[in-house]
Computed example of a mutant assay.
Amino acid sequence: MPTVLPVPIEFRLPEGWLPARPEGAGVSDVAFAAVHSRPGAGFTANITIDGGFPKDGVTLTEIADASVERLRELAESVEMVHRSEVGSEDAPALTQRLSFSAVADGARHELLQSQVYLFLVDTENPHKRAMIRLALTATTAQHGEVLHQFQDFVRSVRPDNGAVS
């Protein structure tokens, strides 16, 4: 069942990406999913968005570690390839890339998942913060081709303040 984001955001999907029902993209428990218009080696690359309100004091690193452990429950050979803390003190972020093997549509695929974790702080209550996770999952062969599109997508994500222009 799709989840609701803890705060409204706006973003722009890159060309070649189509909104999809999360279940249709092979994922659940996400607020938004999009699929690439060209499958690679029998697997359709996807972008997902989910999030929540972490407990006070929980760091992005702890949230990312928990994500790795959840993936280990669903996939094989999960390995963290890269992790980096980015952003600023006011807008912390963390990126990580995971490699793993999983079965989709009856076939085993070698996959890479790039994840971006963002903390969004409530401007009216700075002690209240929401976490948003953006993830790209693609075959190892297709990942390099779609990564720059995912990066463009990540750069377009911002809080939706509801203003009409």
Rank of each mutant, 00 (worst) to 15 (best):
T44K: 09
G24A: 15
V157A: 04
M80A: 15
R70C: 05
H143F: 09
S165R: 00
P6T: 03
R97V: 14
E23Y: 08
T95N: 07
H82F: 14
S165I: 11
A31Y: 07
S67A: 08
A141L: 13
V103E: 13
Q142L: 14
D65G: 12
V27Y: 10
Q113P: 05
L74G: 05
A138T: 10
I63W: 07
H148S: 15
G16T: 08
V86H: 00
F43S: 01
T59R: 15
E62L: 12
I132W: 00
I49E: 08
T44L: 12
V121K: 04
V103T: 14
R133S: 05
A135F: 01
F119W: 00
E79P: 02
S84G: 04
A31Q: 07
A66H: 03
V116S: 04
V164D: 09
F153Q: 01
P2K: 02
S165H: 05
T123D: 14
F119P: 08
F100Y: 01
A107M: 11
S28W: 12
D65M: 14
M1S: 04
F11K: 02
A45E: 15
S114D: 06
L136T: 08
G42S: 09
G51Y: 00
D50Q: 08
V68M: 10
A33G: 12
G26A: 14
E23Q: 14
P2L: 05
V121A: 11
S101I: 09
L111M: 05
G87A: 08
L5N: 11
Y117W: 06
D65C: 13
D29E: 11
V154Y: 02
D160Y: 05
R97Q: 09
G24W: 11
K128Q: 11
L120E: 04
A25G: 13
R108Y: 01
F32I: 14
A66W: 00
F32L: 15
S165G: 10
V103C: 08
F150T: 09
E110V: 05
T3P: 07
